[in-house]
Design a protein around this nucleic acid. Structure first.
Lengths: 121, 121
DNA sequence: ACGATACATTGACAGTAATCGATATGACTG
DNA sequence: CAGTCATATCGATTACTGTCAATGTATCGT
């Protein structure tokens, strides 16, 4: 059912996707509140990993990529890839769409732009 | 001697400051090479901590801040502050200038801009 | 020279994160 | 329905990171 539902990833203890909370006042403009800093740090931590950066760069360079197309280029095991897609998705940076057997991943340009803005963009 | 030498922070096993290596091809444009990803991840990891984000926001909001002015607002011990300033400095995000007893910290806008650019800016 | 101040370094500990094998779930195929 | 394929989840291991007390190293004032 539901022909193209975006994956709701198991409310993994963190509720991502406020989508504008990231774009608090830019870091360079004024002292950050503790809650803003924690939220932004959480999202930056999702990016601060070489495997996830490469994963994102692959996903963002293509309109659509499925998990099976990542295992090879990233040279990591399937559970590891699954772990990393989950971390990025929880941070709202990519979105998974499940169609049939496959999960198709898309980058989330709005969120990435929000991160840039939070970095003083 | 040397009236205003910028702090050379003990070549801490990582040599930061290529200053343009960060601004590799934007993550969103094309698949990242492993070395680019590792370098960018290292710098993002320096940012991906709530205490360091607040520290940076304080330093960046003022033309000059000394370490003693950070201990209070961040509510961390002196060694912890020293640790975090070192991490940010090693990543080239802030720069320390030692004058007399004090170390004065400045934000490094160029590097922050380079990070934004690496994030698809 | 002495004590005090500002900061760095060291060492230890606790919490977190990356990785993978094994296993579970769910979807197509015959 | 049985078998295979694409992913997700679990459990364990290893490695890293944030934190602070204790200590070291300059620098300043007296």
């Amino acid at each position: 059912m539901a022909e193209s539902l975006t994956v709701k990833r198991a409310a993994s203890s963190l509720d991502a996707h406020s989508d504008d909370l990231v774009c608090c006042s830019p870091v360079t403009a004024a002292p950050l509140a503790e809650s803003e800093a924690t939220e932004l740090a959480r999202i930056l931590a999702a990016l601060a990993d070489p495997v996830r950066l490469r994963l994102l760069s692959i996903v963002a360079s293509s309109p659509e990529v499925c998990s099976c197309e990542l295992e090879g280029p990233l040279a990591k095991s399937q559970p590891t890839i699954s772990h990393h897609t989950k971390v990025l998705a929880d941070a709202g940076i990519i979105t998974g769409e499940k169609r049939g057997k496959w999960t198709w991943w898309h980058a989330n340009p709005d969120r990435i732009a929000a991160i840039r803005k939070a970095l003083g963009g």
